[in-house]
Simulated scan of single mutants.
Amino acid sequence: MTASAAVLLEARSLCFLRQDEPVFGPVDFALRAGEIALVEGDNGSGKTTLMRVLTGTLRAASGDVLLDGARFSLDTVAGAVVFLGHHPGLKADLSPRENLHFAVGLYGIRTGADVDDALAEVGLAGYEDEAVRRLSAGQKKRVALARLLMLPARVWLLDEPYANLDREGIALVNRLLDGHAARGGAALVTSHGAVTFAGDALRRIRLHA
């Protein structure tokens, strides 16, 4: 990542209030292609809230969000940004393969991506047709990670991506982040534990109420 890389996601004087009390802000950052940014802050500083503002599920009290230089809207974010939160966002009665096909039907597919290859890459070979409700929490997280590999979104918003993963799973998340940055994507990541990603592209964004 270089200083001349394109800005994919930008926040300008972004503030969020809850019951007229500030949760965070003002926040200013520019997330560039090839960059991974860690959102830091004490418990209650609004890390998850920021992610939800950036996905459009919560409305900021003030400030602007720009995606590829244009004013953010739910229409522009669809397919351009993918969010992975505390819940994997999977349909429990569908299989991992069916869940990925469903996501691709909604948001499109990344060039060269293949469902079975993605599931194998996250360690779910042999579980492609198992109902998601029968999988462990860690396996469900891996299905959600495979979804990242399938979709064309250049911006990843990952809220606690290391949760419910063993050491091998944590290393998997880091490999996916490295690969995404190398392809010209960018990611915003929150983590309550010590950050485990040590790639050259890592930078930090600090939230203050």
Rank of each mutant, 00 (worst) to 15 (best):
V81S: 01
R110Q: 13
D117P: 01
L100P: 01
L67H: 00
D68E: 10
R71W: 08
V82K: 00
V115N: 01
R71C: 07
F72N: 01
G105P: 05
L67W: 03
G126P: 01
D68L: 15
G123Y: 07
G79N: 05
G89A: 08
F83P: 03
S95I: 07
Y127H: 11
R110G: 01
H86K: 11
Y127V: 05
Y107H: 15
H101K: 15
E98R: 04
G123M: 13
L100V: 05
S73E: 07
V65M: 07
F83M: 02
H87E: 15
L90C: 04
L106W: 11
G105M: 12
E98P: 02
G126D: 08
V82C: 06
Y107D: 01
L94F: 14
T76M: 13
H87Y: 11
A92R: 09
L66S: 02
A120R: 09
G112N: 02
D114G: 09
E98M: 09
L66T: 05
Y127A: 14
A80Q: 14
P96H: 03
T111M: 06
H87K: 11
D93W: 10
D117Q: 10
L124I: 07
D75F: 09
A78R: 11
G89L: 10
V81E: 00
A92T: 11
D116G: 03
A125K: 11
E98H: 01
V82F: 14
A92D: 15
H86C: 05
L106Y: 04
D117K: 08
A70F: 11
G85S: 08
R97L: 12
R110K: 10
S95K: 05
V104A: 13
A120C: 14
L74A: 12
A80R: 12
H101V: 12
A103C: 13
L106M: 15
L66R: 13
D93N: 10
D114N: 09
A78T: 15
I109H: 05
G69R: 06
T111S: 10
P96M: 09
L100R: 01
